[in-house]
Amino acid sequence: MATRTRRPSPARAAVTAQVERVLLREAALLDEGRLDEWLALYTDDATYWVPLERGQADPSSTVSLIHDDRALLEVRVRQFKHPRAHARTPMPRTVHQIGNVEVLEDDGRHLRVASTLVMVEFRSERQRVWGARVEHRLRREGLGLRIAAKRVDLVNSESELEGIVALF
């Protein structure tokens, strides 16, 4: 595990700024409904995970609210385009508010990034507010960063929930 350092350094500040740009771009693409461009932020082996249980260690031995590999993520995005996607037409309108961004680890190839998410969702005369701790695993590709894994721990993941169609 890489060591965390509290020492300010210009290089570290630059990395944090780059990470924040990726997270804010992801949020903007989701809020604007540009899902193909959103998906393009993800690597070909990406996973998108919304665990059921707090601190859930493993997506294969415990059920999840959502656990998608890249193929299922593509299906999820494609489904929005079907004219009879009943639960997704119209698409939910969202505002993603990202905060508390912190680079937890940087091994040169991957960065592990923590953030918090407050998302307001509106669809079908219903507004819902979601709160989550989010962890991104970002991969350096060329000069940029792509999302290799995203984990969204909803504060109310273990409660009785209505169906989830919006993307966090």
Binding site: V63, S64, I66, I164
Partner: peptide
């Protein structure tokens, strides 16, 4: 086989399932 059970549960009973959410909507 239990991993298959989990994968199947995620698609038929996952709260964010592309399948279940349409049933709930109806």
């Amino acid at each position: 086989m239990f991993r298959d059970t989990i994968a199947f549960a995620n698609v038929v009973n996952g709260t964010g399932s592309p399948v279940l959410t349409d049933d709930l909507e109806i």
